[in-house]
Amino acid sequence: MSVETDDGHGHGDSHHLPAVEDWPKGFGEASWWPFIAALGGGGFYVGAALFILGRGTEPMLNPMIGPLVFVLSTVAFLTGLYGWLYHAFIVDFWEGEADSYGFPLKLTMLLFLGTEVATFGGGFVYYFFVRAGAWENLPAIVTEGEVLSTLVIANTLVLIASSVTMHYAHHALLKGDRKRFVRLLGTTFGLGLVFLAGQVYEYYEFIFHYGFGITDGAYGTAFYGLTGLHGLHVALGAVLLAIVFVRALYGHYSPEKHVSISTVSMYWHFVDVVWVFLVVVLYAGAIV
């Protein structure tokens, strides 16, 4: 979930109003966006619950209800998110004091990344238990050493390259080279999509050509659990990149105003570092 958050800071007077622009208009301490976003957020879980009830040999309800609720929740969630981010950041972008507000947002991203360490930690601990434990019933791709393929190495290089382009995009923005900034930001987004495509292709290869799925032993669970969790994070990162890219195309950001570039950049580097760690322990670590 995105933690690139709202502004709600500084309108000068002694008690500032956090939500002046939000709908319902004209109040200052009222906004429908959180409620709508939370409705969508809660709806994801209700949808997942209904999906589970629709599974099995004797489903309790139509198996399509869960996914339907999920889709509707996505609409609500994105609407809430869009309204919130729009009113917090976009509508008042140049007049707001985004830069002095940069520290809270960067701190928040850092805290969010701290929670991500714990989130990934659970999956890694499982893998370490398996790897250091019996380490039996291994799939063919591990016993024959094929898990660390050229595809993975190429994909890793793509993701590392995207971190580099992200860094230099930010650098170009700070130096006022706007054209280069937009170009490198677009490149980063493109490389992120290439990585995701490579990941999908790898899953396809493993599942359909090697017959290696998530239920194939302890390693299958670790492999798809961890790469899947990471893939979701890259997908979220790509969404964030798309948002800042579109905003950059519309003329946002300057050497003084670049907070969301910083926070998205932090997130992207983090996802990159997790991937490198993952390749070392899950791919290379499985065959050495």
């Binding site: 301490e29 966006w33 409620f35 976003a37 917090a88």
Partner: peptide
């Protein structure tokens, strides 16, 4: 610091 996140965090609780 983030009033809207504050509200979202609460409204996730009732469905939970």
């Amino acid at each position: 610091a983030f009033p809207r996140i504050n509200a979202i965090a609460f409204w996730l609780l009732p469905p939970g």
